[in-house]
Write a protein that binds this DNA or RNA. Structure first.
Lengths: 208, 208
DNA sequence: GTATGATTCAATCAATTGATTGAATTTTTG
DNA sequence: CAAAAATTCAATCAATTGATTGAATCATAC
């Protein structure tokens, strides 16, 4: 950090912590690993955030909030329309996180991992995560009921879980896959979204 | 452990380690947590397995091997047929792990978690995992080429990843979901397999 | 300028971590 | 039974963990 010097310490810690939590998980991340890379004092974490747990919470807060808000905003615009379509609901769900991650370049890549990894964290992390995503999940479940009438409650839930798992799959595997099979790590938002929407639409509607 | 006394120490450690790795991940698991629950000496781990890493390897070995072997065996029986169908390939992939887990009762539930969680482990764990599943993955990729001609290499890979993600989703979320929405945690192998096969077949074939 | 509050720092805490040692014990072998 | 091998044990190691303290430094307001 030479020019544009002295990014605010709190933000700096947050940035590094985000990457560490994404890569190593909550248990695998050490405060010392973070503060060493961020080049700050250990006490700074306690001062600005409190505990390791609080730090994790701050990381989630910063990144999940804008995604969920955008998803819900997009969803609201869809469900007021006369005849909502499943593809539009799914696009409203998939595009915000994908677009955000794409726009963030390298940081986006670690956020991908974070999003995938945080789904398998234990308590108390799990509740922390769920708190942020539960309202969004419920809204989309309701919307699916509109566009896919006649399914059982169980069907809705599994459809939603599958929908979620596809994006988590993309987010966590994208780097691995493109490294394994291609020289080119580039991907386009529209390609990915339409791939996800396509697979999921078919799965939900045409599943015999 | 009162009757049927004295399960072999090595197996005993393996059982407890399996559950701990499943729940807490590699980093979150402590040898002391394991040996305390298994009621054995710390040195027993070193004696029977070596390091913590070696122990993890032993856990994978024991559980992944029979699954992969059964998957490949089922696959071989399918691809010799005159006209292979996608549904049959998918069933060959999905049924073995699902059936195994179901047959194992409570231990199966933790194995579910393990299978899901191990997918997001870091090196050197990741390579350990990949080593066991890579041959299987390659075989199924080849088979998909037979039943879904005309797709790009990229398409095959993402289809395979999505196929994988659906079962990982089921394995890791099943307990959470059924706890959230129903009183009944029971599920039938055939129901689950046909749900997975149905969703995935549609996603692969009818994706516009 | 100086006082007040915000921030950073080095030093240290007790607890836990994976791992190892060598003796004690059990089991197997001849 | 006795020798040998396999297994278990308590004790301990150095390293790392999250967290805290009180002094030092910085920024801001008056």
């Amino acid at each position: 950090m030479k020019l544009a010097e002295k990014k605010d310490t709190k933000t700096h810690i947050l940035d590094v912590a985000e990457r560490h939590f994404a890569i190593y998980g909550f248990a695998g991340t050490t405060l010392r690993g973070i503060i060493k890379e961020a080049d700050v004092n250990v006490a700074a974490v306690a001062y600005h955030f409190g505990s390791k747990e609080d730090l994790y919470s701050a990381v989630i807060e910063r990144f999940a909030k804008p995604v969920v808000e955008e998803q819900l905003s997009r969803l609201r615009k869809e469900i007021v329309k006369r005849n909502v379509k499943l593809t539009n609901i799914l696009t409203a769900f998939y595009e915000p996180p994908i677009a955000l991650i794409k726009s963030m370049g390298k940081r986006g890549a670690t956020l991908s991992l974070f999003l995938g990894r945080c789904q398998t964290e234990q308590e108390p992390i799990y509740s922390m995560i769920d708190k942020h995503f539960a309202p969004c999940r419920d809204q989309f479940l309701l919307a699916m009921r509109q566009v896919l009438p006649g399914l059982s409650k169980k069907d809705y839930h599994w459809n939603f879980e599958f929908m979620l798992s596809l994006i988590v799959c993309f987010l966590t595997r994208q780097q691995v896959i493109s490294k394994r099979y291609t020289a080119n790590e580039n991907w386009q938002v529209d390609d990915v979204v339409s791939r996800l929407v396509g697979f999921c639409t078919a799965g939900m509607q045409d599943s015999k």
